[in-house]
């Protein structure tokens, strides 16, 4: 049985659709006066954050609490993590406390994978972002958002994103969001195009299941969704691009560019936005921009993931489920997704 969520690449199409469908059920819970489910009562989930990210931490925490889990927040930032030993030490401390799941955010690519496969801990591991590697729940919530907007809330159930054209723009090189989204959106049948200056595209990108373009304008008219990635201003100091102004001019999304997108097309952003850099205020605040929805959807997605990894055999919610196999379904094991000591 599958116990971890480390990389979006580990999810099959059916796994991913199941998570999105489950998240729709979870979203209905959010619409009820009492937003809480008893599913994870008595289970302990630790949010282990070696890197600051209040947004992601709060989103997971809300999801865990809505599922009635006992939540422990462990912020390891600022402690002596540079030596690396503390990941193992912390893991063993949590193991001794008998936690059921660890949601880990770490600056080092591969840290969640190490945690899941090194025998340091027995709990389920959920990757909440590792270095420049993966952020699978972000990709899931992005896919969820795109499916709702482009296919429909009810019409989308059981559906993937076949044939949808999604353009991801910005600092692909340093982005775990881009990597996760390329993997997941491709698995869901979408056609993905990455747009960035060549300096911000990794060497080796040629094997990724997507197209790469250096020209934003040529991709706008054929995009059902344009996802803008955050670009840190400091990158220009390492000569990735000359100036902020030139970056915005070539790769920023402003009102003129948005107008050249198809009418139904949406603008997505994982946040936090750097207004004036990759996105203008006009675009960020428009109806077509889903950034606020993405935040709300993040909680539903994380509830779905926690439920499917930990939830046992009870149905997620009391009313009849549209996905009748949900209670018995588990993620299919794939090599990168397998643990050394499966139970």
């Amino acid at each position: 049985m599958q116990r971890h969520l480390i990389s979006a690449a580990d999810l099959t199409r059916d796994d991913a659709v199941l998570i999105l469908d489950t998240a729709e059920e979870m979203a209905r819970v959010a619409d009820r006066p009492i937003k809480k489910l008893p599913t994870l009562r008595g289970r302990t989930v630790v949010n282990l954050f070696f890197e600051d990210s209040t947004r992601t931490r709060i989103s997971f925490e809300a999801a865990e609490k809505r599922l009635s889990a006992d939540v422990i927040n462990f912020s390891a930032k600022g402690s002596s993590v540079s030596k690396g030993e503390s990941l193992k030490d912390t893991a063993q401390t949590l193991e001794a406390m008998g936690v059921d799941a660890v949601v880990i955010r770490h600056g080092a690519s591969g840290a969640p994978y190490r945690l899941a496969t090194s025998g340091w801990i027995d709990a389920a591991v959920i990757n909440a972002g590792d270095g420049t590697h993966q952020h699978p729940t972000q990709a899931l919530l992005d896919a969820f958002t795109a499916r709702r907007r482009l296919v429909g809330r009810d019409a989308g159930l059981g559906q993937d994103l076949s044939g949808r054209r999604i353009t991801i723009v910005g600092d692909v090189l340093h982005s775990r969001v881009a990597r996760s989204n390329v993997d997941l959106l491709h698995t869901l049948g979408a056609e993905v195009t990455l747009v960035a200056p060549p300096t911000l595209v990794p060497v080796g990108v040629e094997t990724w299941p997507c197209d790469v373009s250096y020209d934003l304008d040529s991709t706008l008219a054929k995009s059902d969704a344009v996802m803008m990635l955050r670009v840190q201003r400091e990158r220009m100091n390492a000569a990735f691009f000359p100036t902020e102004r030139e970056y915005s001019r070539r790769y920023g999304l402003d009102g003129d560019r948005m107008a050249r997108m198809p009418e139904h097309a949406i603008v997505m952003h994982p946040g936090p936005m750097v207004r004036g850099m990759e996105i203008t205020a006009e675009v960020a605040d428009s109806d077509r921009c889903t950034v606020v929805e993405q935040v709300a959807n993040g909680v539903s997605i994380r509830m779905a993931v926690l439920y499917l990894l930990l939830g046992g055999n009870e149905p997620a919610v009391a009313h009849p489920s549209p996905t009748t196999t949900l209670a018995s379904r588990r993620f299919a094991p794939t090599p990168a997704f397998r643990t050394t000591e499966e139970k």
Binding site: A9, S109, T132, Q134, P202, V203, G204
Partner: peptide
């Protein structure tokens, strides 16, 4: 090594 694997793993090349 910088290449296909580093691009996927997100490790500095």
């Amino acid at each position: 090594n910088e290449g296909i694997v580093s691009a996927e793993l997100g490790l500095g090349g």
